[in-house]
Amino acid sequence: MEILVCVKRVPDTAENEFELNSEGNDLDRDDLVYSVNEWDNYAVEEAIQIVDKVGGNVTVVTVGDDESEEVLRREMAMGANNGVLLSDDAFEGSDCRSIAAILKAEVESGAYDLIMTGAQADDGAAEVGGMLAAMLDMPYASLVNEIEIRDGGKIKAGREIEGGNQEMNEIELPCVLSIQTGINEPRYVGIRGIRKVAKVEIPTKSASDLGIEENSVGEKGSKVKRLDYFVPDLGEGAEMLEGSTDEIIEKLIEKLKSKGGLG
């Protein structure tokens, strides 16, 4: 089975304290710590486990810049066989639809049975996978938390729905699945693993390599425009308790008592 997994390099929410740039139209991206989108690690792990069972190859792909190569290497250290970087100035400022259109070109240059994305990434859009499927005219299932490969070019896939219930589906291959966290336990990648793949050649493809019209994607081709970033003002917010830890605890205990928080 040939599996393509789409992965994204994202600012790590655990490692950064985010600030806005002076224009207020983006994060201050200098010195941010980046990592692989959490959901995408689960997708790569799942792909590796499937290939371990039924044979085949896992290819990881990302739309990004030179620095995005590091996330491809990380996923190759996990066990993905190939990596592809899709990079071009014309891709900058892409909305989800443009990202999906760029990924579609890569899917069509190969012969994939199964395409996976994460359920969502740092923009919380949860859109790229579903758009890609529709562009490819393939069936789609989002929030997949279980995959069983069946005979006859079919899979059985569980989707996580509200309340943690699981919706079981039978889906024809080729298809696109977005993967939910918790489907597996992504393996640990150590420095040694990264070193092993440090010198592997990762091909980079540009818009023209992919046969993509430059004005159809990126800032020019995107119909959805992001104008700014701001910190929402949701009214009062929490009353912040300040002082020494002892003082804070004293104040907190008084409040908990009055709210029935201490038994």
Binding site: G124, G130, M131, A134, Y140, S142, L143, R159, S178, K223
Partner: peptide
Amino acid sequence: PHNTFGMDLAPGLSVKLDSPSVSD
């Protein structure tokens, strides 16, 4: 709705209708 059903439906719908999509 931006829930497990909407995430399943909407992105593909926007492609098929060829209209822009904004989620959540």
